[in-house]
Design a protein around this nucleic acid. Structure first.
Lengths: 245, 245
DNA sequence: CAGCAGGTTAACCATGTGTTCAGCCTCGGC
DNA sequence: GCCGAGGCTGAACACATGGTTAACCTGCTG
């Protein structure tokens, strides 16, 4: 929910063919990979090699022939998904200049549904792809937040890196949990749309009006654990941005 | 992170023997159940009946003899975990009068580590227990928030139920994601403690200073999608609390 | 044409899974 | 003593899994 409402006309607009890959005429290897991503995303990483092979119209032996093992296939899927995300993101940056963050992802989910489902499943089980994906999002969030602070629409933080990580963990985590709670059969796109619909108001409320009416909690914490950069609420700090981990 | 810092001396204090069950001398059936909870929590629900049986010092056939099947064992574990949580919660309510919420859970994790791990694993895979547990937390959060609003330390919401659900989803989701990202071998207690350490400052910042410096985002949303209860920011509303789902 | 490399497959293997079966052993009631 | 009920077990079964092997087929190069 970072930079919410910061996008331009996401819900409407052409959901034409901007998916990750051209639809057909793929090499068999690519077709196996894509069906694996689709199946992994739909049913989790417990799906068998046979199921993937059948769905791809191919023999089970062929998938291990191409990818060495099921783990090899999994790794290739990870690499490919990460590549798709990176390309989609840079494309989005080109078109809308550091636009929406999580919410634009939500909107793009219609086109990248298998990819999104795969990422969710990956986040639900941990591992390398999950960490890389999350770190990337956290770094991006830190940049967006810094830009917002620069523009004066976001108050500065005593620890920008920690705030970025916190907000990313929050946003991605709630998406993950909501998806899990909906059960394994619900399709990601619908879950995300419903979620965006009901969660927008409370998130805007909390992020603009806050949750604590006074500063006692924060102040008492700061009294107990002082922070080097001093209080940024007054706004007279010299150099802000003590990026820590 | 609801009602943060609202507890009394959680970090210190006696972590004596207030675990869910007396340590030994359990019936074999109970011992199998406990071992299953521990193993499910540690390694996920993929662990085999044989592993559980071995760990419990019993034959694989006995566990199915007692519980009918692996699913039966799983259901019994769910029921028991839910019962333990309910009892622990009512005990906590008795002792500290609607005290901390998520943070107290974090502090109690030392005593209930297997239970907590089981719940996390359950949330990561969805299902009945996950939904019941989450709904219960969301309801509790709504009560706590209402109490805070009543006391004047929390600003009112245009949709208290949605805000409670949003915050619960946020808090539990980030815990879930953080645990997943740490990998399957990290022990829950350490993960939770680390998490509480670094996330307290940013969460306090965001929840007291907000994330948006001005009201434009919220106001433009309210202009586009008006809410019945009108603006609670002015504070002159007649009857607040239009609980919706 | 031969020959070869690579995509592709059916059959098979080893392993691990949940579950069943027949029977053991022990304890309490008659 | 007997006998049955129930906790309990070792061995096995049926099944699904990931992976291997030998061969097939196709298309290309010489």
């Amino acid at each position: 929910m970072v930079n919410l409402l910061n996008m331009r006309s996401t819900t409407s607009g052409g959901s034409s063919n901007r998916g990750p890959v051209p639809p057909e005429d793929l090499t068999t290897r690519a077709r196996i990979r894509d069906t694996a991503i689709r199946l992994f995303g739909r049913a989790g990483f417990g799906v068998g090699v046979r199921a993937i092979a059948t769905e791809a119209g191919v023999s089970p032996a062929l998938v291990v022939h191409h990818f060495g093992s099921k783990d090899g296939l999994r790794e290739e899927c990870d690499r490919y998904v990460l590549r798709v995300v990176r390309e989609a993101k840079s494309a989005a940056v080109e078109t809308e200049e550091s636009g929406a963050h999580l919410l634009s992802m939500l909107a793009m989910v219609g086109d990248y549904e298998p990819t999104a489902a795969y990422i969710i499943r990956s986040l639900a089980v941990g591992g390398d792809l999950a960490n890389q994906f999350f770190d990337q999002m956290a770094r991006d969030a830190e940049e967006y937040l810094a830009a917002g602070v620069e523009a004066g629409i976001i108050p500065p933080s005593r620890n920008p890196a920690a705030r970025a990580r916190f907000l990313t963990l929050t946003g991605v985590g709630m998406l993950l949990l909501e998806t899990n709670l909906r059960g394994p059969d619900a399709d990601i796109g619908e879950v995300f749309r419903d979620f965006a619909a009901w969660s927008t108001l409370p998130s805007l409320e909390v992020y603009t009006e806050g949750l604590f009416a006074n500063r006692t909690f924060l102040d008492s914490y700061l009294a107990a654990f002082p922070v080097e950069g001093d209080q940024p609420a007054t706004g007279d700090g010299d150099d802000q941005g003590n990026g820590a981990g």
